[in-house]
Amino acid sequence: MTQIFAHRGAAGTHPENTMVSFYEAYRVGADGIELDVQLSKDGEVVVIHDELLDRTTNGKGNVKDHMWKDLQSLDAGYKFQKQFARATIPNLEEVLAWIQGTNLILNIELKNGVYPYRGLEEKVIALVRTYSMESRVILSSFNHYSLVYAYRIAPEIETAPLYRDGLYMPWVYATSIGAKAIHPSIHTAPDAIVAASMKEGVAVRPYTINNEDKMRHLFEIGISAFITDFPERAVKLRNTIDVQ
């Protein structure tokens, strides 16, 4: 069965990368949650997508230039402020402590393409091991050097390269770096590539699928999973297809 991963939680209806967004993804029946991590100035593993605070919070400047205690005080509700007043930025430990008690898969994207956060891989892996989540975590990144390093120090945790441009025989590339899956932009994941990858035992989980016709097509071809801002919409559609 095609799995549904909630992109930054239920980011289409709730403030992205916040606990309220993750709770909603779980409530509506998503199979997994995708989130992003960076490091604060004092080395805390912070759950946030942009390097800059400006878009999703009432803060300014780079995440890396702020202490964790200051990041905690920011309002991360942004465009959903009326419904979700005072949503805050979580750290990875808070998410892991909660998700450990669910059946959800956790896709952690290492956001170290713009700033090469020293120690990010080690800190994330240490937390995953602390909460015994090795078998339910996927590490992904556009920084494939980071993924190779993560695989070397924690081969028991699945890795999956993210990419936006076409890769030739991506299943071969994934296998060569120790990855068990690929997370391509949907625009670089035609059916033939999906089928060939899955045939070779490499899971395919494209992003970001919000169109119902595209969701339906992916369900019909039996893709491994896809990542969406609207997990409730995807789950309801999958249920109608399963019934038929």
Rank of each mutant, 00 (worst) to 15 (best):
Y117D: 00
V95R: 12
T208M: 03
A181F: 08
A85V: 13
I227C: 05
E16R: 03
V95P: 05
I89E: 07
F219I: 05
N103W: 05
G32R: 04
I186M: 15
A234C: 05
E51K: 14
N143I: 12
D229M: 06
V202D: 06
R216G: 00
S224N: 05
L92S: 11
E51I: 14
F80G: 01
H14D: 02
V194C: 07
I223M: 03
K60H: 14
H144W: 14
V172W: 08
A87F: 05
V46C: 02
T208G: 00
P90T: 09
V63A: 00
L92A: 06
K64Y: 08
P161E: 10
E24R: 15
S197Q: 14
V20S: 01
A203T: 10
G113E: 10
I241W: 12
V235Q: 11
E156L: 08
A189P: 01
V63T: 06
L52Q: 15
Q81P: 00
M198D: 13
K79S: 02
S185M: 13
V128L: 04
N112W: 01
A6P: 06
F219V: 03
W171V: 02
W98H: 11
S140W: 06
M67D: 12
T240M: 15
L92Q: 12
A97Q: 13
M198A: 14
N143F: 13
D54Y: 12
P161L: 11
V37C: 04
N62R: 15
K41S: 01
T18I: 09
I182E: 10
Q3I: 11
V45E: 07
G166N: 04
A10F: 09
N91I: 10
E109G: 00
V95Y: 13
A150T: 12
G222S: 06
G12N: 12
Q83E: 08
E134D: 14
D70Y: 07
F84Y: 15
I209S: 01
P170K: 02
I33Q: 11
K41A: 01
L218Q: 02
K60R: 15
H49C: 09
A76V: 08
G101Y: 15
V63Y: 10
F230Q: 08
L139F: 10
M169W: 01
Q38N: 07
V172T: 15
N58K: 12
K199Y: 14
Y26H: 14
L162C: 09
D191C: 08
H66C: 01
V28C: 07
I4D: 05
I193C: 14
V46H: 09
S185Y: 14
